[in-house]
Design a protein around this nucleic acid. Structure first.
Lengths: 108, 108
DNA sequence: CTATTATTTAACTATTATGTTAAATAATGT
DNA sequence: ACATTATTTAACATAATAGTTAAATAATAG
């Protein structure tokens, strides 16, 4: 499985996506602070974090008895790089679409 | 489930990711042409295409008895937009990392 | 050493996903 | 109508995923 596809798989679960969004917005957080992303038990969160870590989406730092998690910038960047590598394709298509809509609104 | 998370889920399967990459590189293709993305049966490909379609990643066009598939530019663009919305975060972090590596190589 | 706090692992269950083969549907050509 | 080509749906088996509670581990404080 390509590295990117594993990244997508990790983000393809709603709970994990919510965890990542929260970490992106609030920065490094302990596992316990991530429980409120849904009504879900601590063990469930812990396992989602393990999946995210294995996929290279988050990393862990230890501080006393807490485990602090944060998003690995490389992961988010890699996703953007993939999309951008096809930019010519989607930019062109979307420009065409926009032109067609403009044409439509100006018609008659 | 957020729309983006469904998109990620669709791309999070290695076979589907390969299908999408092939469509991005070669443009619109009939279902039959997508079988060689792995040693997999036609029904399996058909169902992957259904998942991709439901997630809004690909669209279908009918031409006689063939079903032609292509990638929806909006899907790829949306992924890029998500990554870019956190650009400040990852750009900063990666700049710091680069600076640290430069520091390292110049040291002593 | 014992208690407390934070988190993970184990064991188990239920649901979902993926693949297969066989049959059905769609569209065209004879 | 029948055969051919292209693709999907049905039915089924198996594997993977995600959730739960209970127990274990980690680290600190008393």
């Amino acid at each position: 499985m390509s590295n990117l596809s594993s990244t997508f798989a990790a983000l393809g679960d709603a709970t994990r996506f919510a965890i990542v969004e929260k970490l992106l917005q609030e920065g490094e957080l302990p596992a316990g602070e991530l429980q409120n992303v849904g009504q879900i038990s601590a063990p469930a969160i812990s396992r989602h974090l393990k999946v995210l870590r294995k996929a290279g989406v988050v990393e862990q730092r230890i501080d006393a008895q807490r485990r602090l998690y944060s998003v690995r910038p490389e992961a988010v960047q890699a996703i953007g790089a993939w999309s951008m590598s096809y930019r010519e394709f989607w930019q062109k298509s979307l420009d065409r679409l926009e032109a067609a809509l403009l044409q439509e609104s100006t018609k008659k």
